[in-house]
């Protein structure tokens, strides 16, 4: 399997704090991988490293075989779905215009979207099941629909890799489930998906791999401490994984159901 995202011994320091420490992981072509960990574990930072928004202090990052800040035209092959909470819901903009933004990167400076862009946007909206919401204002639709709109925006550029940051925050469980199912179908079209979440329970039914990262562990730098950290182990069911792999951020794991515990969704 061709690697799409490769991180090797990636270290990131932000504002004097080490946020990521020695992360090594690979996402292969066509895989659906979720990155789990508690708040502040460095999950979003990891995505930003892959997107080229943060350069690691040390280590190698490769996306489509290139450094993420030197992607050139390949940048348009990455779709990104940010946390919906960061979006201003009172912004006067229609769903179709939000989805069209997915085409902006490939359009370049000063060029306005043309008919072909509009077609691609509408197609992406149909694919995620919100084809009828084009003229609605972004703040008028439900959280689940909005999530699909942002996925459609990522899809509008017809990307080969989609990165999602906590896509189901604030979305009800039923809508989350069908959202993951939708991602699974998009994966079926050959798109590689990397999704950050703290919702390991539901996600593990749909993904190929789970990668557990935790800033706390990274900061301490010694796996033994994480292993004895009962709370984290309980919450994320990662204890066994950490144990086997030694270095926490290193972790990439195979199916997941086995790790699910009682009390998890």
């Amino acid at each position: 399997m061709k690697p799409v995202v490769e991180l090797s011994d990636v270290w990131v320091e932000l504002g004097g704090h080490t946020v990521l420490e020695g992360i090594t992981m690979t996402v292969g072509e066509g895989e659906f991988v979720s990155v789990v960990g508690p708040n502040g574990a460095g999950k979003t930072t990891l995505l930003k490293v892959i997107l080229g928004l943060i350069r690691p202090g040390q280590g190698e990052v490769r996306v489509f075989g290139k450094a993420p800040w030197a992607l050139g035209r390949d940048r348009a092959r990455i779709g990104y779905v940010p946390q919906t909470e960061e979006v201003d819901l009172s912004f006067p903009i229609r769903v179709i215009d939000v989805v069209l933004m997915g085409r902006y990167g490939a359009l370049g400076w000063m060029r306005r979207p043309a008919a072909a862009d509009r077609r691609a946007a509408l197609e992406a909206m149909e694919l995620v099941g919100i084809g009828d919401l084009a003229d609605k204002v972004i703040g008028e639709i439900s959280g689940g629909q909005r999530q699909r709109a942002f996925l459609a925006r990522a899809l509008a550029a017809r990307p080969d890799l989609i990165l999602l940051d906590e896509p189901t925050t604030g979305v009800d469980p039923a809508a989350s489930g069908s959202f993951y199912d939708l991602l699974h179908r998009i994966q079926g079209r050959g798109v590689t998906i990397l999704m950050v979440t703290h919702d390991i329970g539901v996600v593990s039914q749909f993904v190929d791999k789970v990668a557990c990262i935790n800033r706390k562990l990274v900061v301490h730098g010694r796996p033994e401490e994480v292993v004895t950290d009962e709370v984290l182990a309980e919450m994320y069911g990662c204890a066994a994984l950490f144990f086997h792999h030694g270095r926490a951020p290193h972790m990439v794991v195979r199916p997941h159901r086995a790790f699910r515990r009682e009390g998890e969704r």
Binding site: D97, M101, R112
Partner: peptide
């Protein structure tokens, strides 16, 4: 008028605009 698209992008979603290379 010239930067209508670019300004809309950074006003609505600066993170996404940065990701798109602006």
């Amino acid at each position: 008028a010239l930067l209508y698209k670019e300004f809309l992008f950074v006003t609505f979603d600066p993170v996404m605009a940065e990701v798109a290379g602006f």
